[in-house]
Structure formats: structure tokens, C-alpha cells
């Protein structure tokens, strides 16, 4: 079994875990696409929404980069800052991991929340941060998501959310599990108020986030090639002891099986989001 694992290639980005560099360093003049292996000038990749101009591979994208790409300029106003994870279980190594995550991501936690306008329409917005423990959901992520949905419900705003998450953050034990229930409750109240929620699933969206607010949208979009699932691919493979079907747990497979509404490349997302917001808010979007 050990040898098998050694020889086996990782199935998706999540399995690569911390070993894979988060593609974000714009100081490099060139970026080599992990998919087609071709190099492109960083500026060309950036101008193409962090998508490889050669093959369309979607580079993993930081929360604040995404906010820049997806919202009208200078429209983002951040909310619910100043929340920091505690270590309720005194879990071995958690404090150090948090410190490292803060240093790597330069973020307080794994989600950024606030309001913005997209195509001229005001919306509440959350964007998860892959650089902070792969977007794992602990109490702070839960609190920020819940607060955002409560705010949006109160103000009659739609919610647009970009998910990227390895799932619940096990270092916070049951508190992280409870975030699934908390966030679901807040989404339910927002929905009961007749308001629109549009999650966009990016790679990877798995575990407790998939099994709560990622799948609760009125309309669910995903990025091409994104890993989307509940149980980890390796766990499934080891449990069933059978090779996984091609394309298992991809956005394309989720579409085929009827669990998402559409796959939208990043270059077209802002336009589609604005269009959907317009149809669900009665506002008139600016032409994009």
C-alpha cells in the first residue's frame, strides 16, 4: 500500500496540499502553466484574469485579486474585520499553523467579506482565501459568512460568494463542524426573505463547505476544471480500492450529474454575475 501511494500521482490540487506554490507572485516576469507547461508573461496572465492565455488553465487566485477582477473599481468596502481564530481545543500545532497562514496570505482569516458593486449593482460579497489554510472553515469563517448573510438580509442585498475550501478546519473540532449548521441557517433566512444568493465554486471546493453554503445557492456556477466534491478523492479511492473514473469530482462532472447550473470561465464571470444580479434585483446593470 505504501509503495502504491508512492507511485500514485496526486488526483487534484487539494492532494498536492501545501507543496504546491500558490500562483500569485507577479514579481516573476514569466509564469509557467502547470497544465500546458507553456510560459507566458505574468502581465499577460494577469490581464487574462489569471487564466493561462495558451490553454485556459485557471490559476489559483487570491481573494483580493479576485475582488479586483470581479467588482467595479473602488466599489469594494470590507466588513467584519478584526475577528481572529482562537484555539478552543488547544490543538497541537494549531497556533503555529495560524501564524504561518497569516504570514503566507497576509490575511486575518480564510474569507474576505464586504459589499461591492458588480456591473453597477450593489451586492454583499464573500471571497474565500486559498492562502489561509486552504480556505478551511473554522469559527471565524463561519462568523463572517453568517454576519454577511444577516447584513444582506437586513439590507435586502443579494449575496455573491466565491468558494475555495478544503472543508471544515479540524483543529477547531466540533466548533468547525457547527459552522456548517450556522452558515446554512443564515443562508436560509436570506433565502426566506426572497433574496438572491449566487455562489461560484472555484478549485477546490470540498468537504464541509460543499456540504453547506456552497451548495445552497439559488444558482450555482463553477470555474472550468475546478475540483468540487464532498469526500476527498484519495479517501474515496482508498475506501473503495478502485481507480477513480476520469473527471471524478470536477466541475464538468458536477454539471453532468446535475449539481451545478453552469461552468463559467473567469474571463466571462463578471458579465454573467452582473446579468444574473440584474435579473434578480430589478436593477439596471451597466453594459459590460
Amino acid at each position: 500500500m505504501a509503495l502504491l501511494n508512492f507511485k500514485r500521482r496526486p488526483q487534484n490540487e487539494l492532494e498536492l496540499g501545501g507543496r504546491q506554490r500558490i500562483e500569485m507572485d507577479q514579481s516573476d516576469p514569466e509564469m509557467t502553466c502547470p497544465n500546458c507547461r507553456k510560459s507566458s508573461p505574468s502581465s499577460a496572465v494577469w490581464q487574462n484574469f489569471n487564466v493561462c492565455p495558451e490553454c485556459g488553465y485557471h490559476y489559483r487566485t487570491r481573494a483580493r485579486q479576485r475582488i479586483l477582477m470581479m467588482t467595479d473599481s473602488n466599489s469594494f468596502s470590507e466588513m467584519f474585520t478584526g475577528l481572529r481564530p482562537s484555539d478552543p481545543l488547544k490543538f497541537r500545532g494549531y497556533k503555529n499553523k495560524l501564524e504561518a497562514a497569516g504570514a503566507i496570505s497576509n490575511e486575518e482569516e480564510a474569507v474576505v467579506t464586504g459589499t461591492a458593486s458588480i456591473g453597477g449593482i450593489n451586492t454583499a460579497l464573500f471571497v474565500m482565501e486559498p492562502g489561509f489554510m486552504m480556505g478551511s472553515m473554522g469559527s471565524v469563517v463561519g462568523e463572517k459568512i453568517v454576519s454577511l448573510f444577516e447584513y444582506a438580509t437586513d439590507k435586502g442585498l443579494p449575496v455573491v460568494g466565491f468558494t475555495v475550501s478544503g472543508g471544515a478546519r479540524m483543529q477547531e473540532g466540533l466548533f468547525s463542524l457547527m459552522q456548517m449548521a450556522r452558515t446554512s441557517g443564515a443562508v436560509m433566512r436570506h433565502s426566506d426573505a426572497g433574496l438572491f444568493y449566487l455562489p461560484i465554486l472555484t478549485s477546490p471546493t470540498t468537504g464541509g463547505v460543499t456540504a453547506s453554503f456552497a451548495m445552497d445557492g439559488d444558482i450555482i456556477l463553477a470555474e472550468p476544471g475546478a475540483t468540487i466534491g464532498f469526500a476527498g478523492a484519495r479517501v474515496v479511492e482508498q475506501t473503495t480500492r478502485k481507480p477513480l473514473p476520469k473527471g471524478f469530482q470536477t466541475a464538468e462532472s458536477m454539471l453532468e450529474h446535475g449539481f451545478i447550473d453552469a461552468i463559467v470561465p473567469r474571463t466571462k464571470q463578471k458579465k454573467i454575475i452582473a446579468r444574473l444580479l440584474k435579473m434578480h434585483t430589478g436593477n439596471k446593470a451597466e453594459d459590460l
Binding site: 481572529r84 482562537s86 469559527s139 477547531e172 457547527m178
Partner: peptide, 9 residues
């Protein structure tokens, strides 16, 4: 469930 989170402000 709303109250089931532990964090610092």
C-alpha cells in the same frame, strides 16, 4: 447554533 463559534475580536 448562531452562538456556537469561538473566536477573538
Amino acid at each position: 447554533f448562531r452562538s456556537l463559534g469561538r473566536f477573538e475580536r
